[in-house]
């Protein structure tokens, strides 16, 4: 899909969520869903297989998100998948998150950790990243076991890597 079309879908989702008054919640749920989508080959193939009817793909989305996310989030994802744009779902959602953060004058900070961060840790990490980058951040946390331990934070083009995985890789490389 072209950037313009991704941008168009992102803007549409953004406007719907904002109109519903659940932008923050929807944005967070969509972000998590996008990361799950990226990390799961089975989910990705199920939602992008054109041999699977659109209704079936939407049913899969509703089964996955029903009861775990807001109805707005479920409907928006279902709409995108039903329209055959499942392959571009992460890019659309990332665009939406960027747009939402920009609307709040925030920078998106993608934080990956091996274990979930507590609310207190998220707040302190957001403040630390704001101090480090000089701009307020919209913290998006992802639980990624491949990190092994520690945190990898990405703010724009800046990557702050304090993960055990990277240290192990560096150690292996040095050895």
């Amino acid at each position: 899909m072209s950037d313009a079309r991704i941008e168009g879908y992102a803007r549409a989702l953004f406007e719907v969520a904002r109109a519903e008054g659940t932008l923050d919640e929807v944005e967070d749920e969509l972000f998590r869903f996008a990361r799950s989508y990226e990390s799961s080959d089975a989910l990705r193939s199920a939602l992008t297989d054109e041999m699977v009817p659109a209704g079936k793909r939407q049913a899969i989305v509703e089964d996955l998100l029903g009861g775990k996310a807001t109805s707005t989030t479920t409907q928006l994802v279902s709409m995108v998948v039903g329209s055959g744009r499942g392959r571009d779902l992460p890019a659309i959602i990332d665009q939406l998150v960027a747009r939402a953060s920009s609307a709040k004058n925030l920078a998106v900070a993608e934080v990956r950790s091996a274990v979930p961060l507590t609310a207190d840790q998220q707040a302190r990490l957001a403040a630390a990243l704001a101090n480090a980058t000089g701009q307020q951040v919209n913290l998006k946390t992802i639980v990624d076991p491949s990190v092994i331990g520690g945190i990898v934070a990405t703010v724009g083009d800046t990557v702050i890597d304090g993960s055990v995985r990277t240290r192990v890789e560096q150690l292996k490389s040095r050895l």
């Binding site: 950790s113 840790q121 630390a128 480090a132 331990g149 304090g162």
Partner: peptide
Amino acid sequence: TDRLLADGALDDAGQQDLIESFIQKVGAN
């Protein structure tokens, strides 16, 4: 290293220590 990681050498306390260390280090920078 692989065996250590496979054995789950990083327990919850270790994970928390790493996270706290990262937050402090980012904040200090």
